[in-house]
Design a protein around this nucleic acid. Structure first.
Lengths: 233, 233
DNA sequence: ATCCCTCGAATTGCATACAAATATTGTCTG
DNA sequence: CAGACAATATTTGTATGCAATTCGAGGGAT
């Protein structure tokens, strides 16, 4: 099924997804240059499409688009990070309030399954981060509030950048048990306690700010895997 | 070549701003088709730049980008509208909490001045809507929280679309006095009352949902003014 | 050795060309 | 006259080419 697979509506979107995944997996770490040529060459598309993808990524805040100087993976400052988590809190609070006491059994199962997956992947650093984020986006998804979903997605994505830059290398970013506790409160409909739990949860992420890590692999090397995943080149 | 004026960092941005203003002023009403070449022709740029601008607008939720079928000004459903105001409430609550009791005299003056401008423009329908929105973005601005600012801006912008579609034609969308009351509470540091006021304020906007208005002017006609404002064409 | 200038290579900004897809018009048939 | 179909005209999707800008290396001059 290597051919078109599900293309999701255009190759530019595919490029966007490929780059986004690469960034979120920290295969392209903050500050990495993103030259249109190399990316296009590696992904088998023209600069035009890469450009479009970069514009989208910059609107999402994952990429910084310096005029005439090229795009780089965004490098949020520590303060931007703090503010971002403040905003995240405001939105996830709405998520929790919307969902508390209203979860269907089917949704509860989905969340439980996800939490078990998180526990299973506890040792794998990369997957662990991704799954932790996905728990939050999964919750947001269940509100069926389109703008809320979109913003939580964006903020969770950018949180990865923050953690990549300032997070402790080995601490599991989200304690899995906190996710379980939150789910329990949501099911029980204890809204206030759930909100408090969410606040502490995000606070505890925020207060783990530390040293940056830097490795400089070549873009082309790193992108080949993601190209395949999107059915490109 | 016409004056470059203040280009703000690239002609694609200029196109983006021109279209955005046209949409927010309801000169391009929801559902209007946005063909790349007519716009480019009218604005004196190539399709490439128009396309880039449309991608940005679609990321902001102002434009709907149907693959192979062209872009149209977004036409949010009534339910999307309600959800949007829910999200807005969550974020503007954070704005209020952040600002309450912390406004500098200079900022208070700026807000007061703005409110007076709103009163002055009460009769002019178009300007009135724009100013009402700008009050909220002005508040957000003062938090110095980049992501918060961006999202409030986006949501306020999209609120214009909602009101264009479902709002009563003649009701002043935001009662100016409510803005003044809110400011008073913020200055006095009465956070809870300010939050409550903001909630009522947004609620009262939400509960004014009614009939759509449609006028179908040609894109080219309508864009000429905006072209000049951005130093295009 | 350090600074500065100049020139060339690399990269972005933008327009244009062409292919693919969709909408439209006109015509024919029942 | 309605509906189907074919030919055509628009409009979008993508690649490529050229001008403009930035980056980096080399080569004096101090």
């Amino acid at each position: 099924m290597a051919q078109k697979g599900r293309d999701g509506g255009g190759r530019s979107q595919a490029v966007h997804r490929a780059l986004k995944r690469a960034i979120l997996d920290q295969a392209l770490s903050p500050g990495t240059k993103l030259p249109e040529d190399s990316i296009g060459e590696r992904l088998g598309v023209s600069r035009t499409l890469v450009r479009e993808a970069l514009v989208r990524l910059s609107e999402e805040g994952l990429v910084d688009l310096r005029p005439n100087k090229g795009a780089v993976v965004a490098r949020p400052t520590l303060e931007e990070g703090r503010n971002l988590f403040l905003t995240r809190m405001a939105l996830e609070r709405l998520v929790v309030e919307t969902l508390s006491g209203r979860l269907m059994q089917e949704q509860i199962d989905a969340l439980s399954t996800h939490i078990r997956a998180e526990e299973a992947a506890k040792t794998e650093h990369a997957a662990s981060i991704r799954l932790a984020g996905e728990f939050h986006t999964l919750l947001a998804q269940m509100t069926h509030n389109a703008s809320l979903i979109r913003y939580v997605n964006e903020l969770v994505a950018r949180s990865s950048l923050i953690l990549a830059l300032y997070g402790r290398p080995h601490s599991s970013e989200c304690a899995v048990s906190e996710h379980q506790d939150l789910l329990d409160k949501l099911v029980a409909g204890k809204t206030d306690e759930a909100v408090t739990l969410m606040r502490h949860h995000l606070d505890s992420i925020t207060t783990r700010a530390l040293l940056p890590t830097d490795d400089g692999r070549s873009i082309k090397d790193v992108l080949s895997a993601y190209a395949a995943a999107e059915g490109l080149a």
